[in-house]
Write a protein that binds this DNA or RNA. Structure first.
Lengths: 99, 99
DNA sequence: CCAACTCATAGCATCGATGCTATGGGTTGG
DNA sequence: CCAACCCATAGCATCGATGCTATGAGTTGG
């Protein structure tokens, strides 16, 4: 379920391009954030449409984001965080820090 | 020193627009990240040009970012983190968590 | 005084994320 | 079988971030 996306291909392609180590990372982060949002959303018992309304976006945008279809921008992450009653945390961690 | 920027005005304007709570937050985050990068960069004893080269961008881009001139994208943050020997950490923290 | 370096900015092209509308397939409940 | 909901995707317009080049002002060292 939800594994026949075109975006999976897109993402995979992006992550295997030559010399795209940073893009790879960003894409991976985007994917993980998408999964986390999906998790949080389901925890709230919300549909994509409901989250979308709460975050001031459309269902399609939520779907695209959850699927890792694009690398989200900070404003979007911020709105999602608010809707999900979280705080967006972005920082440069020491490489030694735990993941 | 470094306080006569046009971007300060731009940012301020962005942060005082009506109903721009999320944009405000994103702009604030961008500003803080910029300051942190500047701090880290100076800790390495690097000029903007040197960091730019290490991060695969130009000096003007670094200056723009450090000044909070734009809200950076994850790929850019990732590249800067790598150049500065850090790990980019993005997550949805519980509202109770410390800043 | 000049050369070399610093950082701040401008202007423009391009790329990519987002917003939007519209489907389509899947599932469920009547 | 149909209505109503779910989510995945497409296509397109727009906006904004980034890359680029080129200055300019300030500082420092010769």
């Amino acid at each position: 379920m939800s594994d026949r996306l075109d975006w999976n291909d897109l993402r995979e392609r992006r992550m295997t391009e030559p010399g795209a180590a940073e893009t790879y990372e960003a894409t991976r982060i985007a994917f993980e954030l998408g999964q986390e949002v999906r998790h949080l959303r389901e925890g709230h018992g919300w549909s994509q449409s409901e989250l979308a309304r709460a975050a001031g976006m459309t269902q399609s945008a939520v779907a695209r984001f959850e699927a890792g279809g694009t690398v989200p921008t900070l404003p979007v992450l911020e709105r999602l965080a608010r809707a999900l009653d979280r705080r967006l945390d972005v920082r440069f961690a020491s490489n030694a820090d735990a993941a």
